[in-house]
């Protein structure tokens, strides 16, 4: 038996919005400590890892781990019916055949109840190693979104490197080339700040198409963290308040 209630249902809406173009079908794991999801695309280029901790919910009860196989397009259709200020409750029983979604307006004047049929999915899981990266950048999520949007007009691959002073994004295409430097700012507890920490330089290339899809998570967080090392997958993390995160991993492009 699972029951999870989030007064700020808006957060769940944003989570689903940021996943739906990347994930077709996925197993959410409902566990006593929270809700998790791991999903890779069929070409194994990207991986999404989601965590929503139990204590971030207003009410959370889950006695044992329940895999909940979901078609994201279907879930997306249903959750679109929740207003931004609705509370959302998820409810599933142990047989894993359906998931109930209950949307309550703040004045409790309207209560909507949907039942989503679940799927029995055989999902590929990988062990995510505890990586230590050479470069860590924290920057405003809207700036990353803008970089992706602007550079996508020029080419398909983005090259990323960092110095102490700035993180640099470069692209080359048939029409020419472009680059954007995002400069680090002084003491960065401010949300709009940019911080760069570097153990050694890294120069990495990635598909702009996938990086752009990750930025669908921008409404979830004012800041985003990028971590990368030479010839390794990059980690792009959007924190979800104090309750968890969405992490995206993107396999690099390497010289042929």
């Amino acid at each position: 038996m699972l029951e999870a209630r989030l007064a700020q249902g808006n957060v769940l809406k944003k989570v689903i919005d940021s996943l739906r173009d990347l994930v077709n079908e996925a197993n959410f794991e409902f566990t006593p400590s929270g809700i998790t999801l791991q999903s890779m695309d069929s070409a194994h280029v990207i991986l999404v890892s989601l965590l929503l901790r139990a204590d971030g919910f207003d009410n959370y009860r889950c006695d044992r781990t329940i895999p909940v196989g979901i078609n994201m397009a279907s879930l997306s259709k249903i959750i679109r019916a929740a207003a931004n200020d609705d509370a959302i409750t998820l409810r599933a029983d142990d047989n894993g055949e359906s998931l109930n979604l209950i949307f309550e307006a703040p004045n409790a004047g309207r209560v909507s109840d949907y039942e989503l049929k679940l799927m029995d999915l055989d999902v590929e899981q990988v062990a995510l190693p505890d990586m230590s990266y050479d470069v860590t950048v924290r920057m405003p999520s809207e700036e990353l979104q803008r970089v992706c949007r602007d550079l996508s007009a020029v080419g398909e691959s983005v090259t990323i490197n960092a110095t102490k002073e700035s993180i640099n994004f470069g692209v080359k295409g048939e029409l020419g080339s472009g680059s954007i430097a995002i400069r680090s700012t002084a003491p960065v507890d401010k949300k709009e700040g940019v911080s760069i920490s570097m153990r050694q330089p890294a120069d990495v290339s990635f598909s702009l198409k996938f990086l752009t899809q990750f930025t669908k998570a921008t409404p979830l967080s004012e800041t985003v963290r990028l971590e990368f090392s030479n010839e390794c997958p990059m980690l792009v993390e959007y924190p979800i308040g104090d309750m968890g995160y969405i992490r995206f991993y993107l396999a690099p492009k390497v010289d042929d």
């Binding site: 280029v45 062990a127 691959s157 396999a251």
Partner: peptide
């Protein structure tokens, strides 16, 4: 030109 790698070469299957 650049070649897209796969995550499976970095992350092992359990």
């Amino acid at each position: 030109s650049k070649r897209q790698t796969s995550l499976l070469s970095f992350f092992p299957s359990p």
